[in-house]
């Protein structure tokens, strides 16, 4: 049964984020657990990156399909909010894949979180030319998880997976 569950886990882990398709939900830290319920169902637990992230519904559906396709008839996908997702859960592989796709990986978050200001990543590195002479264009981008920056050295705009 253990090896079976590993197969279910592998199937769920390979599902990619529809909005950042270079990342799997395992890379993202969105996949929180794959367990077997007492009645033989496979229960997959996922957590949203942002409260309103529209990708969650697609991800939940794809996880269910993937685990079913791996041979498990009864699959339940649970969405939990707690503990809240943080970009610190991105795996090293995930951070590398982001950089390769031209998206700057997030800075590590400090866990203090008592001030009213959000952290600003200083000297964010341009994923195209490597320069740290960059400026922020907007803290909000094409998806909830990204900010938009521009590089002063190569002149190109680029996205940052913003720290949360």
């Amino acid at each position: 049964m253990v090896s079976d569950l590993e197969e279910a886990r592998a199937a769920a882990a390979a599902v990619t984020d529809p909005e950042v398709p270079v990342l799997t939900i395992e890379d993202l830290g969105v996949l929180r657990g794959v367990e077997e319920a007492g009645d033989g169902r496979v229960v997959v637990t996922i957590t949203p990156t942002y409260s309103g992230c529209p990708a969650m519904e697609v991800i939940a559906r794809q996880v269910e399909e993937a685990v079913r396709a791996a041979g498990f008839a009864a699959v339940e996908v649970r969405t939990v909010l707690s503990p809240p997702w943080t970009t610190d859960w991105l795996t090293e592989a995930g951070r590398r894949k982001l950089a390769e796709a031209g998206i700057a990986p997030p800075a590590r978050t400090s866990r203090s979180g008592t001030g009213t200001r959000v952290p600003v990543a200083l000297g964010l590195r341009c994923p195209r030319c490597g320069s740290t002479s960059t400026r922020i264009v907007s803290r909000f981008g094409a998806t909830a998880c990204k900010a938009v920056h521009a590089c002063r050295a190569c002149g190109e705009p680029f996205e940052e997976f913003k720290a949360l």
């Binding site: 949203p48 942002y50 409260s51 939990v80 909010l81 707690s82 503990p83 809240p84 997702w85 943080t86 979180g113 009213t116 200001r117 959000v118 803290r139 909000f140 913003k162 949360l164």
Partner: peptide, 21 residues
């Protein structure tokens, strides 16, 4: 209330960006 606490922990981080904006 654990449900409210869970929603709040998630939302607080998002709202910090709203306030910043």
């Amino acid at each position: 209330d654990e449900t409210l606490a869970g929603v709040a922990a998630k939302a607080a981080k998002e709202v910090a960006y709203h306030r910043d904006h």
